[in-house]
Nucleic acid binder design. Structure first.
Length: 231
DNA sequence: GGCCAGGACACCA
DNA sequence: TGGTGTCATGGC
């Protein structure tokens, strides 16, 4: 991205946040997880299970884990792989994800406790775990660890791409830098903005292209409500 | 019955 | 470094 278009995009990022907020209102507590001492663990597990998967299927897998009282890092680390595979089967890619979950549970346990993990884990450490890529790592860091890492997911790409702010080839790190440089470094803001993007894209994925009234610096109200899919 | 969903990774040119 | 195939279920 050229420096000139980057400056324009940085200005737009904040505009989009304001427009989404005006449209949807506040959206503070968003990542779905039960309140309680293992809430953060549930967020971590959900972040892995949702990889390329519809959230409704993830919910089925999480329900199975809760029903068996297995939503706990130590128990998951010690659980036989076939049993874990069976419980998370509805979330798809179940063999791969079961192996990743066990690996991750062992990684978390190596910190001594979930709280120690949440306090001290770094992005580099997470990325070194097999099956944890940039989006999953940032989801864990932002929503479980409460650290300011903006999450770039398919919805974020879809919206920015349709607003002609990015090309589809923009790298994850490049996009994340755009958000980090455009916004105050705030966990609360990052969570809310990402939540707004997801909610907006979920509610308004229409297939028609953006209308000709939309420009780089201004989206018409109709298209802000009806952001289309990329594919 | 086909398309799609809140990725990550191995492999290849 | 970038493109492509693979992993898999369930909703619509």
């Amino acid at each position: 991205m050229s420096s000139r278009s980057r400056v324009k995009s940085e200005n737009r990022v904040l505009d989009i946040y304001r427009e989404l907020r005006n449209h949807h209102g506040g959206c503070e507590s968003w990542w779905p997880a039960d309140e309680g001492p293992l809430k953060e663990w549930e967020i971590c597990v959900g972040a892995i299970l949702t990889q390329n998967t519809n959230w409704k299927n993830v919910e089925k897998a999480l329900t199975n884990l809760k029903h068996e009282k297995m939503l706990n890092p130590k128990k998951m680390n010690g659980m036989p792989l076939p049993k874990l595979q069976r419980l998370i089967r509805p979330s798809g890619f179940y063999k791969q994800k079961a192996a990743r979950l066990k690996m991750f549970a062992g990684f978390v346990s190596s910190f001594g406790s979930l709280n120690k993990f949440l306090k001290s884990v770094t992005r580099e450490q997470l990325l070194a775990v097999d099956g944890i890529g940039p989006e999953t790592a940032d989801s864990i860091l932002l929503y479980a660890c409460n650290k300011p890492h903006f999450v770039i997911d398919a919805y974020t790409r879809r919206i920015l791409s349709r607003l002609k702010m990015i090309s589809v080839k923009e790298s994850y790190d490049e996009l994340q830098r755009l958000f980090h440089e455009s916004l105050p470094r705030s966990v609360k803001l990052y969570k809310e903005f990402h939540a707004l993007i997801v909610e907006h894209a979920k509610q308004n994925c229409k297939k028609e292209p953006l209308c000709t009234d939309c420009t780089l610096n201004k989206i018409c109200k109709r298209c802000l409500v009806n952001l289309p899919r990329i594919r």
